[in-house]
Every structure is written in structure tokens, then in C-alpha cells.
């Protein structure tokens, strides 16, 4: 019972999605299932928020190392939720909306939630990703070594593409005789970069794509046939 019903749910709804793809009369049923999916997935992900709270509350109550940072996390979590749900600083935008409470857009420019996005969320996340520019440079110097054929191929391609991505590629045409009038200048590194992109990169990624597609199809079939139940977790 504890696993039979969920396997049946997964099989039925999965088969509905497949059959409806080929049978237009079943399209409304598929649309309902998709709509439900959005709602179920959204509510289910609230569990993530609950788990985050529980994890940090436990750290604070146990006074584990760094519990102060957990307090900061919880504080910023609850402030964000309160500001967003109470629509702090939001004003109605049309005459029709004025008489209604909470009727302006929750992310309106100038509102509290907009401020949090603009001045807390955006700078922190983008700077975190920007840090990778430094680490990539350090890795290029320390770890990007031509040790064998595979590493040489990786390295040489990276060098060619790095040159080919900026106008520095035009330097490579300086060693060639000037082209005839009306004929565009031949830029060797641009040609090679383009060739690599159109052939090796496309082919390599295509093979990966085909492999993944077959993997996804096989896994989906196993789920729909009830052979793969790993997503349900262990016995409880």
C-alpha cells in the first residue's frame, strides 16, 4: 500500500502525458495534470523552506559552532517573507486598484521586496559567481598542464577559442599576404575556432545529448512501468 499507490499515481499520470501527446481529445486532461503539477511542486517545495528553518533552529538551540550565522540566515529569511507577503512599500497602480488592499504588484519598484532583490540578493549572488573568474585564472596557471595527449587537446583548443573569442584573433592574419581588393581578410584563428565549433564541439555535445536522451527515455519507462521505485526512498 505504502508504495503501490504512489507507483500507480506515477504510472497513470505519466501514461496520460504520453497518450495525450498523440491524442488531441485528451489535451484538456493533460492541461489539468500540468496545472496540478505546478501547484503540487510549489507546495512541495515549501518543505524545503521548513527544512531550512528546522536545520538552523537546531543549530541555534544546540549553540553549534557558527550558530550566530544561522541566526542571521533565519532573520533574513523571515524578514524577506514578511516584507514580501505584507507588500511593504507597495502602492496600488491604478484607480481601480486603490480601494483594494494588497492590490499593487509585490515586486513594484521602490517597494521593500524590490529593495531586497536589488540591493541584497542581486549583488551577493552575482559577486559569488564573479569570484569564479579569479579561481579559473588560478586553475589555468596551476592545473592546466599538458601532461598527455588528452590534456594537450583540451589545452590547445582552450587557447585557440580564447584567442578566437576576442578581436585579438585578427593578429593571426598579419602574417598572411594582403587579400585582393574586395576579398575579405582571411583570419586563420577565426576559421579554426569556427571549424572546431561546427564540427568537434557540435559532434561531442551531440553524442552526449543522444546518450542522455536514451538514458532519460529508459529511466522514464522504468518509472512508468513501476520497475524503478528509487524515487520513493527506503521502507518506512
Amino acid at each position: 500500500m505504502s508504495k503501490t499507490v504512489p507507483v500507480l499515481i506515477a504510472s497513470l499520470v505519466g501514461c496520460l502525458m504520453i497518450v495525450a501527446y498523440f491524442s488531441p481529445p485528451l489535451l484538456p486532461a493533460r492541461q489539468i495534470a500540468e496545472d496540478w503539477f505546478t501547484i503540487v511542486a510549489t507546495i512541495a517545495m515549501l518543505l524545503g523552506g521548513a527544512n531550512l528553518c528546522l536545520h538552523h533552529v537546531k543549530k541555534i538551540s544546540d549553540q553549534e559552532a557558527g550558530w550566530g550565522f544561522s541566526a542571521v540566515t533565519l532573520l533574513s529569511f523571515f524578514i524577506t517573507i514578511a516584507v514580501g507577503i505584507l507588500k511593504v512599500g507597495v502602492v496600488p497602480e491604478s484607480e481601480q486598484q486603490v480601494k483594494f488592499a494588497w492590490s499593487g504588484p509585490f515586486q513594484q519598484e521602490g517597494s521593500g521586496f524590490w529593495w531586497i532583490y536589488q540591493y541584497l540578493f542581486s549583488p551577493i549572488v552575482s559577486t559569488m559567481f564573479a569570484l569564479l573568474a579569479f579561481y579559473v585564472a588560478s586553475a589555468a596557471f596551476r592545473a592546466f598542464r599538458a601532461k598527455n595527449v588528452e590534456a594537450i587537446l583540451l589545452l590547445v583548443t582552450a587557447l585557440i577559442v580564447l584567442v578566437g573569442q576576442t578581436r585579438d584573433r585578427e593578429i593571426t592574419s598579419m602574417f598572411l599576404p594582403p587579400p585582393a581588393e574586395g576579398v575579405p581578410t582571411f583570419i586563420p584563428i577565426a576559421f579554426v575556432t569556427n571549424f572546431i565549433r561546427e564540427t568537434f564541439v557540435t559532434a561531442g555535445q551531440r553524442a552526449i545529448m543522444i546518450g542522455i536522451a536514451l538514458g532519460v527515455v529508459a529511466t522514464s519507462l522504468r518509472i512508468l512501468l513501476g520497475l524503478d521505485r528509487s524515487y520513493l526512498g527506503g521502507d518506512e
Binding site: 504512489p6 506515477a10 502525458m17 504520453i18 495534470a33 503539477f37 543522444i210 527515455v217 518509472i223 526512498g233
Partner: peptide
């Protein structure tokens, strides 16, 4: 708690089976 998970997994599996097969294979 497995029921909603099964619904989400089933919907995704059904959709992906056809669409991956078509676009990526």
C-alpha cells in the same frame, strides 16, 4: 508524503520520454 512526489515524478517522466526522444534523439 510519497504521493505528491509520485505525481511530480510521473508527470515529468511522461513528458520527458516523448520530448527527449523527439528533440534530442
Amino acid at each position: 508524503g510519497r504521493w505528491p512526489l509520485a505525481f511530480v515524478v510521473g508527470t515529468t517522466a511522461g513528458l520527458k520520454l516523448i520530448l527527449f526522444l523527439n528533440a534530442d534523439f
